[in-house]
Design a protein around this nucleic acid. Structure first.
Lengths: 244, 244
DNA sequence: CCTACTTTTGACCATTTGGTCAATTATGCG
DNA sequence: CGCATAATTGACCAAATGGTCAAAAGTAGG
């Protein structure tokens, strides 16, 4: 996760035809900010990262709009403003590109859980967690939809990731909630299912936005509506946990 | 909606090539039980309905598993145990078949809301509503997923349905909740958002089953696990509504 | 049996789509 | 400059896919 970028290395050239694809994904994984200890104006791979990011963002939008099967590489290319073979140059295949999108999302998705720790105040921690989830839902609806779409279809690409990454994390978080309950600091809810409910209640604003807007009779949720939604989810769940 | 079936009429034959498609959808719409006032052993269209049902069920499974774009008519045909042109005979196109699946789901989806009426006891009505939604989620996961998938991708097929059918219904239900709140019979929650939360919390068990199973570490939710989930959602939301 | 119909089905087609290639152009470096 | 490597891109291809058709096979009523 924190692995430093492999810098502008010749990227292990084989006959090239086979070598190009592969690890563009790895690039994105640690692309956050290792611009530090490099030489002077390291612009060679700067452009590469920029392109990869452009592509992944375009792909995110297109995959969100049509699903994996419905999205086409041509459409993604158009959305990214690049010729199609270029996508294949950076990400060997449609599937690899899709994976890159999912991987990027997963990291962002797990982050908010950091505030669920035993030493925290239950009410404060949960409220913060829910608010952060709501914020993500409104800020990155496409990412949420790609993720939802993947789960919806049985998670063919990240079933193992769910078991190997999400599950261990959740075990720890669930233990924290259970401890809070044991200490009588909140009502005895089922901690695992509490997370499922929070995920569902928050992400529904990204995933099923059309339905919500159709019912509310608005084209999209403005700032005020987002705040109202957030307030609703926070207070409903906190009260449900006996934390009002 | 209650329109009687057009019985084994010559089904307005034009040059046939163009006539065959069309209204298989209409058939399904009112196919519930008009077996009543017909003549004797009305078996001619009996088989037709059976086939249409078979096809729609197969389509539901396949669409749920791959989305509209990812599903193929060939796959649906195989799942239905019929040759591909047969599907086109009953439902003119892939899109029409998809619509038929969605339409069937919508009816089932709206039904549980019948118990939300002003004269009912809030606690009892809401609990019943939630339980019914949970039951549907476990009983018809494929339908839920097709629906979710459609919403996820912007509801291209049923945006108008949402506005013309779901919205009016919800206006009435929301009014009921608001009345209950005004009468001081439950906590002052945002009634529209309460529905969004209930939908999300219940349908997550169908839509994101893989994620839930991955976290819980089980292959699928057995009866006991389903009961636990249901109990969790019911008590969390009721308490959230001040109805414990 | 015969006529008129609905239904079934194998063979087929035009289009779309993921992916490839080879040729070409940038780019870094000695 | 000149070499090597990375990046770009127009042209292409094989496979998959939604949809069509016409011939064949039921099926009901006269």
């Amino acid at each position: 996760m924190a692995a430093a970028r492999p810098d502008p290395q010749p990227r292990r050239a084989a006959t090239r035809s086979r070598a190009k694809r592969a690890d563009a994904v790895a690039t994105l994984r640690g692309a956050a900010g290792p611009r530090s200890a490099e030489k002077g104006g390291a612009q060679p791979w700067r452009k590469r990262v920029a392109h990869e990011t452009t592509i992944v963002q375009a792909a995110e939008r297109v995959f969100a709009g049509a699903g994996f099967g419905g999205a086409t590489m041509a459409e993604i290319a158009k959305a990214a403003g690049l010729p199609k073979p270029n996508l294949h140059y950076y990400f060997g295949s449609k599937q690899a590109l899709y994976r890159a999108v999912l991987e990027r999302t997963l990291r962002e998705w797990l982050e908010p859980a950091d505030c669920i720790v035993a030493t925290a105040e239950p009410r404060e921690a949960l409220e913060r967690y829910i608010r952060e989830k709501m914020r993500l839902s409104f800020a990155r609806p496409y990412a949420s939809r790609v993720w939802a779409n993947e789960l919806l279809h049985g998670a063919p690409e990240l079933r193992t990731t769910l078991v190997r990454t999400l599950r261990p994390l959740m075990r720890r978080k669930v233990a924290v909630i259970d401890q809070w309950i044991a200490e009588g600091r909140m009502a005895p809810v089922d901690s695992s299912h509490l997370f499922f409910t929070i995920w569902a209640a928050t992400q529904t604003y990204a995933d099923f936005e059309v339905q919500i807007c159709a019912v509310l009779g608005c084209a999209s949720l403005d700032r005020a509506a987002q705040a109202r939604a957030t307030q609703h989810v926070v207070s409903l769940i906190l009260r449900g946990c006996g934390l009002s």
